[in-house]
């Protein structure tokens, strides 16, 4: 098992799922649930003759940040692109369900529990979405996760953490959008259809997935931060992410409503205004929107060091 102290300075981008799960909570507090020793692997992959993994590519468990109990879900991108199938999503659903049940019990038995003592869920995404080998089971699984996030709403904040190599794409992009808050690093990428898939379906003229700068300024953390898709932008070590969670953990659950992206009439209104704005603006590049947000020199916005970016950049207000 990796040592907590070594993990803190480690680059989040290159950390595997277990290292992230252990490092995102307080030292020595992480307990894995349904881990590799329980050997829940995917029955579908076995039938197809594909390699299986003992934890099905997802680490789930529980830890603590200060007084807050943190239910952690962490996806492993190196196992079939972090794709989520039946077993993996059952682990996600049940982790969120456990958190919600714990909340219900806590509030029933201790009505005076402070916000700090109420649990949160943290999902560290590294995935391209549905595991296509598991087709309908995989798709249904995504719906179940979103359903469980809605059940946790107004009770347990669900926080997305995105800063891993594969990013968060496909069906899991929807799941991330349905969570209460999103924390990213500039190397994190968030979207629905991934860059390679857009290029494959629509052609290189539409989107050149080989153009790294283009990919990052369209799906990367800086752009998502300006657009309001990401609530907190952090530098890049596991410690940076943990400290961001430390700030979010004690907040009352009502504070998270303001950070949400979906699931209220006001937010639908806001999204429609954004659609109207893009229809009017006809942006050819993410930079056009950055300029609209009030950043006079979008190329500098893209290239300046992250500290300066965080201090100077204006975010789009709708």
């Amino acid at each position: 098992m990796p040592k907590w102290n070594d993990l803190q300075e480690q680059n989040f981008l290159e950390s595997d799922a277990r290292a992230r799960a252990i490092g995102l909570v307080d030292e020595g507090s992480f307990t894995e649930l349904a881990g590799p020793f329980d050997r829940f692997h995917s029955p579908h992959l076995e039938t197809l003759g594909e390699a299986v993994e003992f934890d099905d590519g997802i680490v789930t468990g529980v830890g603590k940040i200060g007084k807050t109990l943190v239910f952690v879900i962490s996806q492993e991108g190196r196992f079939i692109g972090g794709s989520v199938g039946e077993v993996g999503s059952a682990k996600m659903v049940n982790t969120i369900r456990l958190a919600t049940e714990f909340y219900d019990k806590l509030v029933a038995e201790h009505p005076d529990a402070t916000d700090e003592e109420k649990p949160i869920v943290v999902i560290s995404f590294e995935t391209g979405g549905v595991r296509l080998h598991e087709s309908n089971a995989g798709l249904l699984a995504h719906a179940e996760v979103i359903d469980q996030i809605q059940k946790a709403r107004h009770k347990v904040p669900v926080i997305s953490v995105i800063g891993s190599k594969i990013g968060c794409f496909g069906g899991m992009g929807f799941v991330a959008a349905a969570t209460d808050a999103i924390v990213m690093s500039e190397y994190g990428r968030l979207g629905l259809t991934g860059p390679e898939v857009i290029e494959q379906e629509m052609g290189k003229e539409e989107f050149d997935s080989g153009d790294r700068a283009l990919v990052f300024r369209t799906t990367g953390g800086r752009h998502k931060y300006i657009m309001g898709d990401c609530d907190v932008l952090v530098k890049g070590s596991i410690k940076d992410f943990r400290e961001a969670l430390q700030k979010l953990a004690p907040l009352p659950v009502s504070d998270f409503e303001a950070m949400r992206r979906v699931a209220s009439p006001e937010l639908v209104e806001k999204q429609l205004k954004l659609v109207a704005l893009t229809a009017e603006l006809q942006p050819k590049d993410a930079r056009d929107l950055w300029a609209k947000a009030g950043n006079a020199d979008p190329i500098a916005t893209e290239n300046k060091p992250i500290d300066e970016f965080l201090a100077e950049t204006k975010r789009l207000t709708i």
């Binding site: 799922a17 881990g35 590799p36 020793f37 390699a51 993994e53 003992f54 492993e76 190196r78 196992f79």
Partner: peptide
């Protein structure tokens, strides 16, 4: 004590 190591990436393996 039991130990788990590795990720089943392409060209890789895990061991219990």
């Amino acid at each position: 004590k039991p130990l788990h190591l590795g990720v089943v990436g392409s060209g890789d393996m895990e061991v219990l």
